[in-house]
Design a protein around this nucleic acid. Structure first.
Lengths: 223, 223
DNA sequence: CCAAAAGTGTTAGGAGTACACCCATGG
DNA sequence: CCATGGGTGTACTCCTAACACTTTTGG
C-alpha cells in the first residue's frame, strides 16, 4: 500500500484563431522521454487536490486566471510504469487574458497544441484528453463555461468562434445571437473594438447576476 | 507522502415504493462510531478503482448486479481524522432484481435509508451524497440510466415512479408515455402483471439495440 | 356495479432551424 | 466606392405541457 502515490494532471484549453488548443509539456525524463504530457505532479501531504492542480499549473505554465474543475480519476494499476500512481485529472479553461501562457518556472518545453489533433501523448494521457474534450463539449452546450474561454469583454463573434471551435461545426450567426440574447446572460457595453478595416464590433460582458436566475432550471445553453 | 491512502466509497441507490433510497452501513469503530456511512474501503495494491468499488459493494452488501460509475474524488487533507485519505467515490444503481440487498459477509448493520432524508452521516459523506443526488437527477434526464433502477421487465407506471421519486415531482402519465414511446427504447412485451385488484399492466423491456441509434445525438431523455 | 389503476389524443405555445440582406468603417 | 466583418427578422417545424375520460379487472 505504501507504493501508492496520487498525482494530479491538468488539461487546460484555450481558443486561439478559431482553434481549440491544449497545453502540453515535453517530458525530459523517462518514462516516455520526449513525448508530450499534461502539466501535473504529485499531491503534497497537506494540500487539497484542487490546490495541487492549481499549483502544478502555475509552476509549469505561469497561468493563474483559470476556471478549474475536477475531471476524472484514472487508477489502472499499470498506467505508470514506475509504479502505482493514481491520477486525479483536472479540466481547466484559459480565458485568453493578456498574461500569455509561456513556459513557467520550470525550464521545460511548453506548447499549445491542437486539441483535436494532438501529438503522441505519454501514459494514458490520450484517454484523459478524450474524456476532457467530451466534458468540454458537453459543458459548452449545457452550461455557461463558454464565457470562461474569453476575457471579461468580448464580441459576439468571438463568443461564437469559441462555440464553433469546440463543437467542430459552423453556427448560424442570427440564431446564435438570438439565443444568447434570449438567455439574457450577456450585457452589451457601450464600447466597441475595431479589429481590422471593417465596422467596429460592440463589446459585451457576461452577467453572472442575471445568470443566477437560470441556475435552478438546469441552466440550458444549447447550440 | 507515505501516509497517504486511497479509498473508494460507493453511493448505491434504489427505488422502493416510490421512494429513492441509499444503502448505508453503521460504523462500529471510531471515528464516527455509530454514525452511518457509505460502503467502502481502501484500494488494494493491484486493483483498479472500479474493481475496488465493486469488491467493497459485494463484501458489505452482497449486491452484485449493479450499474457502477465513478462519481468524484474527495481529497481535503482533513476529511478523515485518522490521517490523509483520498476517497474516490462511486455512484451505483440497484436494479431491484430479486437478490434483496441484505447485510453481506460483514456482520455490520446495513440499511436502505431515504436518500432525500438521510440520517447523520460520517466524514464528508453528506457532501458525497449531495453530489451523487445531483448526478443522478442529471443522468436521469439526459441518459437512460433510469432503466438501471428497474428489473428487465417492468411496467410503464414503475418506470414513471422511478422518475418521480428522483425528480421529486409528479409527471403527467400521457406525456411521459408518449415521450418514452417516441424515443423507441422500450419494447412492449406480450406479458402482463397484475398487482392488485385492477386491470393488469403490460410489461416492457429496455431495448439496448434501439438505444444505440440515439447515442450519437446526445442521447436526450428529458422529462 | 364499485374501486383501482391502466391506457389513450388534442391543442396551444415556445424553441429550434433555415435562410439573405443592409450597415459601418478604413483605405 | 470597395472590401470586410458587424448586425438584423421572418416563416416553418417540432417538441413540450396542459388537460379528462374510457377500459379492464376482481370483489
Amino acid at each position: 500500500m505504501n507504493e501508492l502515490r496520487v498525482a494530479v494532471d491538468v488539461v487546460i484549453f484555450r481558443v486561439r484563431q478559431g482553434l481549440l488548443q491544449v497545453l502540453l509539456v515535453k517530458r525530459g525524463l523517462a518514462p516516455f522521454e520526449g513525448r508530450w504530457a499534461f502539466p501535473g505532479g504529485f499531491v503534497l501531504k497537506d494540500e487539497s487536490l484542487d490546490a495541487a492542480a492549481l499549483r502544478e499549473l502555475r509552476e509549469e505554465t505561469g497561468v493563474g486566471d483559470v476556471y478549474l474543475e475536477q475531471l476524472y480519476t484514472f487508477g489502472e494499476p499499470r498506467r505508470d510504469p514506475r509504479g502505482r500512481v493514481i491520477s486525479v485529472s483536472y479540466f481547466a479553461l484559459f480565458s485568453g487574458g493578456e498574461p500569455e501562457a509561456k513556459a513557467g518556472s520550470d525550464a521545460a518545453e511548453v506548447e499549445w497544441a491542437a486539441a483535436y489533433k494532438p501529438p503522441l501523448l505519454a501514459f494514458d494521457h490520450r484517454a484523459i484528453l478524450d474524456y476532457a474534450l467530451q466534458r468540454l463539449r458537453w459543458k459548452l452546450e449545457w452550461t455557461t463555461v463558454g464565457f470562461k474561454l474569453l476575457p471579461k469583454k468580448f464580441t459576439l463573434t468571438e463568443l461564437q468562434k469559441v462555440y464553433e471551435a469546440i463543437l467542430g461545426r459552423q453556427l448560424d450567426k442570427r440564431n446564435f445571437r438570438r439565443k444568447v440574447a434570449l438567455l439574457g446572460v450577456v450585457e452589451p457595453l457601450d464600447e466597441h473594438r475595431q479589429e481590422g478595416i471593417q465596422r467596429p464590433a460592440r463589446l459585451h460582458s457576461f452577467s453572472a447576476r442575471k445568470f443566477e436566475r437560470l441556475k435552478d432550471r438546469g441552466l440550458l445553453f444549447p447550440f
